[in-house]
Structures are given as structure tokens and as C-alpha cells.
Design a binder for these strands. Structure first.
Lengths: 143, 143
DNA sequence: CCTATAATCTTGACTGATTCCAGAAAAGGG
DNA sequence: CCCTTTTCTGGAATCAGTCAAGATTATAGG
């Protein structure tokens, strides 16, 4: 598990100032994959009780832009964040309880990256969201 | 292009009551693919000036549940609706201006439908969103 | 055609995530 | 240690979408 010093280096490496809120947010995202902003605020406040929600929003935005965290937002959900970046993985979302799990690429490295007809767009990313039921909800539905 | 009578039949076929707001919403979605709720309200009001926004929200919800329209919501966008349903197509979204275009499946009929490791989820749909720049924004960026 | 009943619509308040803003605090270079 | 710029605090504001109560309307049945 990454430590505070690592997070500080990650921030410097991305040319971002090292501030307590940013380190705490980075730590929270690493410890709670797929957490939404409100949960992250909660986690950060166990360490820094006085951070403003705005600071967390700012930090998440800065970290996302710098590529240190990734923002995901399945339809109908609020924004969620994760620390796995740069590996082009995808997600399964439970239609019933909203649980999210990681899924590695099914087709080689860049699944579906070549659209059959790109309408002239220059595509740089293919994002895949699988929808279904998680094990628990699946069991509950069949009973 | 589908006419009012067709829409009425579509509603009856889905066991939905035929109301003016629903017919107008169905018409608006058919005529304006990928429009957001606010735009749809605007279009509907050219025909029925007194519809409430709530009626449009209700109609869109009912139509979506019935499978007569499809709701899409790329990250960072509000909900949008389209009338192409049941053909498992996907979308390209312009990172710069938000323009959305349809994309047919790249890999046969069900691209990526088989996740490499589904974590025990029972998956019923794979949704793909391609991100990039539309022709206009792409040109603007290179100048 | 007329009535009954259940679904739908209108109106208007409300929620919750996110953003905006101005002044205070803090990071990093010199 | 000081200065400049970025970031943070606190609080108000925005915006999509939802909730709720009473008025209307669609449809089945007589």
C-alpha cells in the first residue's frame, strides 16, 4: 500500500503543489476504489476534520486532470473515483444496488477502440460499462 | 418519418395510455436524437405550450421503461434521449463540444459482451462510449 | 353516449450534487 | 524569511431532477 511520502512524490511528479487536502484525497481514493465524492469527503475528514467540501472537489478535479486518479460516472450515478489509471480497464455496474467492480479488457489491449464508422471523429478512448446484477442481487432476484 | 398515428400505436403496443404529452415527447425524441430533457421540453412546447416539465419527465421515464426510447448519459452530461432502440449501437462523444454521434457495433453483434472476468455478475448489456474530438473541434484544435 | 376509476398532469416546493465567489491561509522559489 | 501565486474556507447559488396534493383525462364497462 502506498504511503504519504509516495503520494507527495506523485503530486510533485505531476507538477502539483503538495497540500494536506490533496494528499488526504489521494490516500482516500487509493483506499476506497469507486467511492463517490461524499464518501471521500467523509474519509478525508477522519484525517483532516476541517477540510471544506470545496477543497475535496478541487483536489479531485486537479488529480483527475493530472491523471493521478480516474473519474467514472455510470448513468444515473454521481461521480466516482479510482486510483487504477492508465491500464484501460472497464467496469461492471449492478443495476440493483449500484455496486461497481473492475473488469479487464476482454479483447486484447484496446477493446472496440476502432469504431466501425467514426463519423469523422478522432477517437482517443473507448469506455465500456457492463450492466447486470452483482452476485448478491442476482441471488436475491432468483429467490 | 413516423406520424402521430404511429406514435399512438407504439404507445398502445407498449400498454401505455395515449396522452398528448406522451405523443408529443415521442415525436420530439424521434425528431431530435440525443437531445437533453430541456431541449425536449422546448420542442414539446412548440406543440403543447402548456405542458409542465414534470409531464415531460414522466413521459420520458415511462417511454424509457417501456423501451420506446433509450436514455443515454455520458459522464459529465445531463440525460439525453434517442429513438433508436434495440439495435445495440453505441456513441462517440466530442470532449470539446459535447456533440454525440451514433456508432454501430465494431465487433459483430455484441461487442465486448463477454467480460474477461465478470466478478460473478450476470451481465446483460455492454455499453460503449467512444471519446474524442468531432470533425469541427478536431480542425479547430490543429489550427 | 355516459360513468366510474385509475392513471396522468399541473403547480410549486424541495433535494442533492456541484459550482461560484471573496477573502484568508499556505506552498515554493529566491 | 519574504513575496507571489495557488489553494483553501465558508457560504451562497445553480441546476437537473424528484416529491406531493389536488385537478384532469384516458379507458373500460354499462
Amino acid at each position: 500500500m502506498a504511503r504519504t511520502l509516495d503520494f507527495q512524490q506523485m503530486l510533485r511528479g505531476a507538477a502539483l503543489r503538495v497540500t494536506r487536502p490533496r494528499v488526504a484525497v489521494l490516500n482516500a481514493v487509493h483506499g476506497h476504489p469507486h467511492a463517490d465524492t461524499d464518501s471521500i469527503i467523509g474519509v478525508v475528514r477522519t484525517e483532516l476534520p476541517r477540510v471544506s467540501h470545496q477543497a475535496v472537489y478541487n483536489s479531485l478535479h486537479a488529480l483527475t486532470t493530472a491523471g493521478l486518479v480516474r473519474r467514472i460516472q455510470p448513468s444515473g450515478s454521481v461521480a466516482r473515483y479510482e486510483s487504477r489509471v492508465g491500464d484501460n480497464h472497464h467496469h461492471v455496474v449492478c443495476r440493483s444496488c449500484g455496486l461497481i467492480a473492475d473488469v479487464d479488457c476482454a479483447v486484447g489491449e484496446a477493446p472496440c477502440l476502432t469504431a466501425s464508422d467514426d463519423s469523422g471523429f478522432s477517437i482517443d478512448e473507448a469506455e465500456v460499462v457492463y450492466w447486470g446484477l452483482c452476485p448478491d442481487c442476482s441471488t436475491a432476484a432468483n429467490s
